[in-house]
Amino acid sequence: MSETTSAAQPRPAGHRLRSARRAFLVGLLVAGGLLMMVPFLWMIMTSLKARSEVFSIPPTLFPSTPQWHNYPDMWNALPFGTFFFNSVKLAVLNTVGQLISCSMAAYAFAALRFRFREPLFGLLLVTLIIPFQVVLVPNFILYRLLPHPTSASGNWIGTQEPLWVGAFLGGAFGTFLLRQFFLTIPRELADAARVDGANPWQIYLRIYLPLAKPALATLAIFTFMWSWNDLIDPIIYLRDLPTLTLTAGLSLFQGQYVGRWPLLMAGALVSVIPMIVLFILAQRHFVRGIAMTGIKG
């Protein structure tokens, strides 16, 4: 298209062409960025409209009078406060579980020497590739066999336990991510501590964990996000209103409020806002986590 522009021969004509192309590109990017935001914008605007207004012809972007009451209406239509609390609780439990169990495994793979280390790590990586849906049925059957003191079924089905206990039993993604980071920690640090009489557990707690804070933050954010957004597990395991998460609650809400777009959009927005805030606050960790697993892999 513009073979005349080349940095080697900075001619005025080339400059002008290049900055024109640049302006065009920026325009395109901004337009694309806006296009990416349209669904969010539409969500916000619809959530503030009256029910009659959403079908008005010609369509309006802004509500004529913002219907703020849509939010309390939505919030009270189903126990959304409870759903919100459940989502937070499960996300925190999952995050804690993954941080503990993955960092322990990652330390073993990165810093300890033992037989079968490579094949074990290989097996773990294979499970990274297996879609978890493949094991939905055996996991369901397992949780159905486990006794539960307070559940109506007598087993774990219908309780929140299946949604977080597994997080304490390791995970391929987190272990891989943290191992990659642990490998960058100089061995001399651990060696020096060992000379001073520290055992592997102390080395893990006092040297590896404190130095790996950025990677731990990345794993924490990803786990929180996955737990928060998970839909299939809550709809399989949860039965009663007081146990539902926001995603499962929204799905129920969708079935009960068909066509009531302002309320549905208000519900969707409420479920989305915590993740957007988290992302904006921790953008750095997101980006680094993705780049770290992707590039050094």
Binding site: G33, L34, L231, L269, S271, V272, M275
Partner: peptide
């Protein structure tokens, strides 16, 4: 702007 949809739940 391009990244926001990644962090939001598919149901929303």
């Amino acid at each position: 702007a391009y990244f926001l949809p990644v962090v939001t739940s598919t149901i929303a």
